[in-house]
């Protein structure tokens, strides 16, 4: 259990600090005056929220740890997808991580020998989109080594 108000206030103080530390790098006053005002406002509002979290405490349940793990894994997979485009090329990276995400949603895919079919679906869908985007809509897509 945690108090969402208090956690939010503390996190926002971290944000305030991160921004405050960068003010000295900005040469001109005109680039500084507005972000400074907003940072101060955020600090004051967060302080009020912090006080409020003691006056009227609220609690929220942590999400199921299994769910949290799944969320974490999903974010890692998405990150991997984007990071690997550089090395695997857009098409290959997309097929690989598309399939991995499918398995994350439905782990039973691995057991039921449906893996090849899943890869197939991924390959076709991504291929179709790839063609539509690059050929028909003339939209450049990210590039990698293997497939430009």
């Amino acid at each position: 259990m945690y108090n969402p108000d208090r956690t939010a206030a503390i996190l926002m103080f971290v944000v305030v600090l991160i921004f405050t530390f960068q003010f000295s790098d900005i040469p001109s006053t005109y680039s500084r005056v507005f972000p400074k005002a907003v940072t101060w406002t955020l600090a004051i509002l967060s302080a009020i929220l912090l006080i409020q979290s003691w006056v009227t405490p609220r609690v929220a349940e942590y999400t199921d740890t299994r769910e949290l793990k799944k969320v974490g894994l999903a974010i890692i997979l998405m990150f991997g997808w984007i990071a690997c485009i550089r090395f695997l090329g857009f098409y290959l990276a997309s097929v690989v991580f598309f399939t991995l995400l499918m398995i994350l949603v439905e782990p039973s895919l691995l057991k039921q020998n449906k893996l090849m079919a899943s890869i197939f679906i991924a390959a076709v869908e991504i291929g179709a989109f790839y063609m539509v985007f690059t050929r028909a809509l003339n939209v450049p897509l990210p590039r990698g080594i293997i497939f430009q």
Partner: peptide, 29 residues
């Protein structure tokens, strides 16, 4: 209150990059 905190967060994030007046690079880490 939390809405306005979110609003401030959004404004601060939008400040990343080149400042519109002054042309300085800021908050880019």
């Amino acid at each position: 209150l939390k809405g306005f905190i979110g609003g401030c967060l959004g404004i601060l994030l939008s400040m990343i990059g080149i400042s519109p007046v002054g042309g300085d690079v800021r908050f880019t880490f």
